[in-house]
Structures are given as structure tokens and as C-alpha cells.
Amino acid sequence: MTEKKNVSMIQRRLIPTYIFLVIVSIISVFPLYWMISAATNTSTDVSRGKIIPGGYFMQNFKNLISQQPLWKAMGNSFFYAILTTVVCLLVCSIAGYGFEIYHDKWKDKLFSILLLAMMVPQVATMIPLFQMVSKAKLLNTSVGFILPMVSTPFMIMMFRQNARAFPIDIIEAARIDGLNEVQIFFQMFFPTMRSTYAAAAVITFMNAWNAYLWPKVIMTDNKSLTMPMLIANLITGYVTDYGMLMCGVLFCSIPTMVVFFVLQKQFAEGITGAVK
């Protein structure tokens, strides 16, 4: 569409943008860099503020896996986070779609009421929630882990707000074609809203991966250890091994970043790509 000359002109006009983005990126990445380099240094070097990578990574890693069940915790965290993400996306997107597409006075009122659910600090509702989960014999189970996290007003709201951009004509046309309401959701809405699903998946995965207060209350055996709990184990002693700690922290941070990197094209270029 554009000629070579045009391209270079456009790129030249983007130079300030590039400079700005590079600065923002460096500021954003620096702590990650520090984390990686800290994972390669001895504890003493880390606490002394050394920021150049060292050659101690394997030793830190060996210390970590000899002391903590790293792979099991990674596996658990992956399992819980993926489970939460999938169930949450399903439940919340259906609800968000319902609230927007079929909205009327009563559904709008209900939505406002549901929003209230996220506004009370978690500590206040934890005790009653614990009693419920304990009575239901769901302590130390994945169901107990995900239950409070899968239906969140926030995710419903996100799907509701984004469903606003979903063309109503498509629904009308589909109805004429004889699709029922459930089919319309799965065959029309679901594929079209890829970008929303991808963004919601990133956020939900991250929240589930990092969840700490609730899991630490309901998980009481060695088998259910998650990554944030493993990190907590590393900082609780009289002596903190910072090198080993940062090695663990690195393993705790990477999955969310990878998930983001894999999905970012989906949510940032979804529709634009499809239209072309």
C-alpha cells in the first residue's frame, strides 16, 4: 500500500515515540534484570547491591531444589491458575454477554449489586468463607482454591463493557439464520471477542498465579504447595539466602510473562488482523 519512501518518512516521524517507549521499557525491565542478575549471585553479593550478573546461578538453583519442591509447586500453580482462568472466563463471559446483550432495567440493577461484591476487603470475608469451604470438606482441594476466584464482578464487567462493541446486527442475522441464543454466543460472540478473552486470560492467570492469602489459609498439607507459598518459605527464616530467594522468585515470575507474551498479539491485534 505504501511506498518505500513513505515508510521511511513514517518511521522518522515515529522516532520520538520510539525514544519514549525505549525509556519506558528500560524503566519497566530494570527490576526484572536485577532479579535475574541477583539469581546469579551469592546472597552476600546481592545484599551488597551487586547488579552485574555473576556465576552462581547453578549453585542457587541446586540449593533451591534441594530445599524446596520447586517442580511440584510449579505444577500445582500451573494447574490452579489454568483451571481458574478457564472456568472464570467461561462463567464471566457468559454473564457479561448476558448483561449487555439482553440488558433491561432489572439486569442492570442486578449488575450494580454484583459490583458491590468486590468492594469489601478480603480479610473481612475470609473467616465466613473459610467456614463454608471447611464444612464442605474442600480444604486442600483445587475446587476450594478456585471457588472464590472464578466469578468476579470485575471480569463480568470487562466482558460486559467489551460486549458493547459487539455489532447487534450479527446477532439479528444469526437469529434469522435459525441459531439459538446459546449457539449465537459460542459461534458468533466467542470467536469475535478474541482480544477480550486474551486480555482477560492474562489478567486472570496472573491473579490466580499470585494468589496468596486465600491459599495459605485453606492449603494445609505439603502436596498443595504453590509458588507464592514456596517463596514465603524462603523468606521466613533467621537467615535469608537472597541468591536462592531470587532464583525462586525468577521461577515464580516467568510463567506470567510468558503467558502475556504468547497472548499479547491476540488481544492487541485481534480484530485489526481479522478485518484485513
Partner: peptide
Amino acid sequence: LFRTCVFLPCATSLVS
């Protein structure tokens, strides 16, 4: 790349 960089902070572990 830029997008991922800007997103990184909230994926960085609270501890570090």
C-alpha cells in the same frame, strides 16, 4: 516487545 516490557512490572514478583 514493547508491549511485553510495559506489562512486565505487574508480572514481576512482589518480593523482588
